[in-house]
Write a protein that binds this DNA or RNA. Structure first.
Length: 707
DNA sequence: CATTTATAAATTTTT
DNA sequence: TTTATAAATG
């Protein structure tokens, strides 16, 4: 084979890429060419004549998969990498379950719900059971959803998970268990799968005697990226998928494990050799990304870690410029400094696309976003609040989901509650009526002579509409005709529809975009009445239509949206914005795997990094340390870490109340010495300029009561 | 009686 | 910006 590009690899990388048959773990530090190695491995396999359709590539995001495929194609020059099975665990699980789900008793027309939907269903059940009635605080729906997911993914008993991660809920263990049991039942009734089910049923698929064997035989090679952020369930799946073939390559960095809240565990990496006996281990330690001083500071942060890591990164990239620790008076000054530095670099020729601002929590960038907008600096924000979380987007999707899976009670509920004059009670009644087992001929007519006895609630709604309160009649009628329109079914004018229509044409042929338009006819008036800033939100709906225009299949549209939600406005923006230079704002979590010429890390204060929410136990604090490490190692040439001294707590009042922060505990004085330290007094208001030791004294006191 | 509106309180990270 | 509860309304 004439593989010229092999020469560009260092010995360790080459060893990984050209690895023969069997199981391999690649321990790859930050910036050591992990993506390159994986892409080369794919190219190498293709060169060896492996059928791309028999290679499975599991990544953390769809974007990562796309990048590796395009790089592999570029190297092999064959253009066949697109035929790989590539995507996230969840996306691949979905694809497999559509193919084989029937064999384990999965309903044909299942649909997938995201974690928000899961929380909403929890809430319905919580209200039904009347669990939250007492005067004791009961966990919120989002907490319940997180708890459930963690339990399933970790494959541990609920009691253990609650005691460890949600100790304040320990008193409600029984009630929580009862909710979870009902939750499982209702998902099955409604033909809904949550994220965890996708993994869970994939695992079930693996252990099915015949299909499991088929599945494992289906792939000659499996490659897994970001292995440090996989959980016990995912490890089980991999084992199930390697019953007959051994060829597996997992790549990860134990120092970058930052998803324990999703039940990810470094133990997957550490125990890899035991789980896959005979596995070889290759370690990549040469960092090609960052300059020496940046790497030195990053390593120093990790050197205080209580856990032992397997490697120490080194770099040949010399530089005089140390990373900069910027001490600011408060968040406002931090914002000003960030903007100033960004513009300085821009003038020196570093485009905005090579710069990024990173932070711990989505809302940490709020002030900066306002300032960037004021100064006309274009940016895209990754992580934090998402497009799909907006109420009006969810409303519209609920319609489509009813059409896709008429048993989806959650979406029905959402849509019915939109109608003025219909509240939870009436909605419940209507749903009960629609869901009641019908006469057999009814069912037959609805399902086109179908297999199921159960008449689809959608068909019921169209054929025998339940009574609604007088005030809701008009809107209810509009809803029915909108749904009928999308289905391509004529709506029976009066209640006595003639029974001899032939099998109704299915609306599945209608383009999704058209369906959204028709729903709009019904939804728009409600929408305008309901939301104050309808004009702004209308643009979101138009964007949704634009995305829909790219899809032929409604099902594909909905599942893509739930499994690969648009992570930033950039995913939504049309062609005109593509070539515009823009700055990246991102949570540290969403910045995983990315790199920029210059990186700005905001809020390096205790309480922010580490987040106050995570300082409960040692493991939590250690993960926060890794988080800072991930943030710092994103930088190639320039790294700024900002530390605002003063925080206003303007939660309820707009007063002047403030507290003094302390520099993050992950940068003690020995580490600080590796930074260039700047305190810009020019912009400090002299009236509030007190010596730092006074502040520190105050801060020390504040720690006594601000816990 | 059910729905709507008013009021007060709280807010990590994501497939 | 959302969410739980209380009061007002139909």
């Amino acid at each position: 084979m004439a593989l010229a590009w092999l020469k560009d690899l260092n010995p360790a990388q080459r060893q990984a890429v050209t690895f023969g048959d069997g199981t391999l773990l690649v321990v790859a530090g930050a910036g050591t060419g992990k993506t390159k190695t994986l892409a080369c491995r794919v190219a190498f396999l293709l060169e060896r004549g492996i059928d791309p359709g028999r290679v499975l590539l599991l990544t953390f995001t769809r974007r990562a998969a796309a990048e590796m495929i395009s790089r592999a194609d570029h190297m092999s020059g064959r253009g066949t990498a697109g035929k790989l099975w590539a995507g996230t665990f969840h996306a691949v699980a979905h694809r497999l379950l559509r193919l084989y789900g029937r064999s384990i008793g999965l309903a044909d027309g299942f649909s997938v719900m995201d974690q928000d939907d899961a929380a909403d269903l929890m809430q319905l059940i919580r209200l039904d059971l009347g669990v939250a009635k007492g005067d004791r605080r009961f966990p919120q729906k989002a907490t319940l959803a997180r708890m459930y997911s963690h339990t399933v993914n970790a494959q541990r008993p609920l009691r253990e998970v609650v005691e460890r991660y949600f100790p304040w809920c320990a008193g409600d263990l029984e009630a929580i268990g009862a909710i979870f049991a009902r939750y499982g039942e209702r998902k099955i009734q409604q033909r809904l799968l949550d994220y965890d089910d996708l993994l869970l049923f994939w695992k079930t698929l693996c252990s099915a005697p015949v299909v499991g064997r088929n599945l494992a035989d289906r792939f000659d090679h499996i490659l897994v990226d970001e292995y440090q952020d996989t959980n016990a369930l995912q490890a089980d799946i991999l084992r199930g998928m390697r019953q007959s073939h051994e060829d597996l390559m997992a790549v990860g960095d134990d120092a970058q494990s930052i998803y324990s809240f999703r039940a990810a565990t470094v133990r997957n990496m550490l125990e890899f050799p035991e789980r896959f006996p005979g596995a070889r281990v290759v370690t990549l330690e040469q960092n090609y990304r960052s300059t020496g001083p940046i790497l030195a500071a990053s390593n120093a942060v990790m050197s205080f870690s209580k856990e032992r890591y397997t490697k120490e990164l080194w770099s040949q990239r010399r530089s005089e410029q140390r990373p900069v620790l910027v001490t600011c008076r408060d968040e406002e000054e931090q914002t000003g400094m960030v903007c100033r530095h960004i513009l300085e670099h821009l003038e020196q020729g570093v485009p905005l696309s090579e710069q990024a601002v990173l932070f711990r929590a989505g809302h940490h960038s709020a002030m900066l976003e306002v300032e960037l907008a004021r100064r006309n600096i274009p940016f895209h924000k990754f992580g934090g609040l998402k497009f799909l979380e907006a109420a009006h987007i969810k409303d519209l999707l609920a319609f489509l989901r009813i059409l896709e899976n008429p048993f989806d009670e959650l979406s029905w509920f959402r849509v019915l509650l939109l109608l003025p004059g219909i509240g939870p009670r009436t909605a419940r009644r209507i749903l009960d009526q629609l869901g009641r087992p019908g006469r057999v001929d009814d069912a037959a007519r609805c399902n086109g002579g179908g297999r199921t006895r159960l008449a689809s609630p959608l068909c019921r709604l169209l054929r025998e509409p339940p009574a609604v309160p007088a005030g809701a009649k008009e809107h209810f009628g509009a809803l029915r005709s909108a749904l009928a329109d999308c289905e391509g079914v004529p709506l029976p004018e009066s209640s006595s529809a003639s029974g001899n229509e032939t099998a109704v044409p299915s609306g599945k042929g209608l383009p999704v975009r058209v369906q959204i338009e028709r729903i709009g006819v019904f939804y728009r008036p409600i929408f305008e009445r309901r939301y104050e800033n309808a004009a702004m939100r209308l643009r979101d709906l138009e964007q949704l239509e634009q995305i829909a225009a790219r899809y032929r299949s409604r099902r594909q549209f909905i599942t893509d949206l739930t499994l690969d939600p648009p992570t930033a406005t950039s995913d939504l923006a049309g062609a005109p914005h593509r070539d515009e230079d823009y700055l990246t704002l991102s949570t540290i979590h969403s910045a995983k795997g990315c790199e920029w010429h210059s990186v700005h890390v905001l809020h390096a204060a205790d309480g922010m990094i580490p987040s106050d929410m995570a300082t409960g136990d040692d493991a939590g604090i250690e993960e926060e340390r890794r988080l800072l490490y991930v943030a710092m190692t994103r930088a190639k040439d320039v790294l700024y870490v900002y530390f605002p001294l003063r925080y206003y707590h303007r939660r309820w009042a707009h007063g002047d109340a403030h507290g003094y922060a302390q520099l993050t505990r992950f940068i003690p004085s020995t580490v600080r010495a590796l930074f260039e330290q700047r305190v810009d007094r020019a912009e400090v208001d002299p009236s509030s300029d007190r010596p730092a030791d006074v502040r520190n004294t105050q801060a020390g006191l504040n720690r006594l009561w601000n816990c």
